[in-house]
């Protein structure tokens, strides 16, 4: 074995040993009295989140409200990932756009079965992703999951009809704009709270703007708004990442 491999092996063994060593000190699996289950923090979330936000899904309440600031930056992380890939691989100049046009013509004749199947699936997929997005308050789902599925529908179009076909529906500049708008929707919601005199992302004050709500329902609705923002960004970036990586940044041909 090469010396570096031996060093790597020793490192891995030591790290693994450390992890095993620490595991002995963990609370028992599923222990209701373990710190993570029984801390003042967890108890507050479990007992109060329904009262304070009216959202039945505890995870959504924690994700989009109590720790909404983290989620905003997670959305920014997604945005940065897409932008970074475009920045490194390069993107559509006018010359490349002309190339897209040419290769679009070349891809006129695609496999009929693929295209017809995609035509059947895509509307259902998009509708279902909107359901997942909107139903995040009640069941597993929300902006990230809904956004990924919506983005996948564009990827399906690209797989079946060629990348230019998908780009003609959602161009790269358009997708970037959508991604930016998603972050803006999230951050802007927080900013509006600030303009109404509260701290950043303190949604309850939004009941002044949203009709027929009180302070609790304002949080409920604001969570949907920010989840929609997340979905915008995730949809756009999913597609950007696929388009850029599958065509090595040239935005033609693809897989």
């Amino acid at each position: 074995m090469a010396p570096m491999k031996i060093v790597a092996l020793i490192t891995v063994i030591i790290t693994g040993g450390l992890l095993l060593y620490a595991t002995g000190d963990f609370p028992a699996w599923g222990d209701p009295l373990s710190p993570a289950n029984n801390s003042a923090l967890s108890r507050h979330y479990i007992e109060q989140s329904r009262v304070e936000t009216a959202v039945p899904n505890l995870v959504t309440a924690v994700l989009a409200d109590y720790r909404g600031y983290d989620t905003m930056f997670e959305t920014v992380v997604v945005f940065v990932a897409g932008l970074a890939i475009l920045a490194v691989l390069g993107q559509g100049t006018s010359r490349e756009r002309a190339a897209i046009q040419r290769s679009a013509e070349r891809y006129q004749e695609r496999d009929m079965i693929n295209i017809m199947t995609a035509r059947l699936i895509v509307p259902v997929l998009q509708l279902f992703s909107l359901y997942v997005l909107a139903h995040g308050h009640y069941s597993p789902g929300g902006g990230f999951q809904g956004g990924v599925m919506f983005g996948a529908s564009f990827i399906l179009i690209a797989l079946a009809g060629g990348l230019p076909e998908a780009l003609s529906r959602l161009s790269i500049p358009g997708a970037l704009l959508l991604a930016g708008l998603g972050v803006l929707l999230y951050g802007g919601t927080g900013l509006v709270c600030m303009m109404l005199g509260q701290n950043f992302l303190d949604y309850h004050i939004l009941h002044r703007l949203l009709p027929a709500t009180d302070a609790v329902m304002a949080r409920y609705h604001a969570m949907l708004i920010v989840e929609i923002g997340v979905a915008f960004t995730v949809t756009a970036i999913m597609f950007i990442i696929y388009a850029a990586l599958s065509s090595r940044g040239r935005m033609t041909g693809g897989l």
Binding site: S39, A40, L41, H44, Y45, Q48, D65, Y66, R67, G68, Y69, D70, C193, Q198, N199, F200, L201, D202, Y203, H204
Partner: peptide, 17 residues
């Protein structure tokens, strides 16, 4: 100290960031 989401502390525990 600045509370994001304006939850502040409940029972001396920070419940938001």
């Amino acid at each position: 100290i600045y509370d994001l989401s304006g939850w502040g502390r409940v029972n001396d525990t920070a419940i938001s960031i």
